[in-house]
Amino acid sequence: MKRLYLPSHEWVLADQAPHAVGISDHAQHALGDIVFVVLPAVGDPVTQGERFGDVESVKAVSELISPLSGKVVAVNEALLSAPETLNQDPLGTWIIQVEGTVNEASLIDEATYLAMDKD
C-alpha cells in the first residue's frame, strides 16, 4: 500500500484504483472531535490542490484538498452519520474514491510526511 500525502494533511493511496483519499492522524488530532464532513457528489470532478469538501469540528472547519485530479466515483456516506470514525481510524477511513492519475512526484511519501515538522 503506497500512501502519499499533501502538506495540508490529506492522503491518497497511489497504488490502488480507484484511489482512496483520507486525512492523516495529525489532521484529525489537530481538529479535535470531528462533528461533520461535507462531501462532494459522485461524478463531481476534483482537481489536485483544490477543495473537494470540508471537515468540521465544534470550533473549526478545515478544507479538504484533493491530492489528485480526476472524478469522484464513491463517497463515504457513512461519515455523515458517524464522522467520529475519522478520529478513531483516520488511515483506515477513506472519504472519497477518485478515478484519475496520481502525480506521485508532487506528493510526499509516508516516511517523509511523518517526519515533517507540522503545526
Binding site: 462533528v35 461533520f36 470540508d54 468540521e56 469540528s57 465544534v58 470550533k59 473549526a60 472547519v61 478544507e63
Partner: peptide, 13 residues
Amino acid sequence: TLQAREQHIRREK
C-alpha cells in the same frame, strides 16, 4: 450549535 457554518470560524469562506 453547528457553528462551523458561521463567519467567526469560516471568515471569508
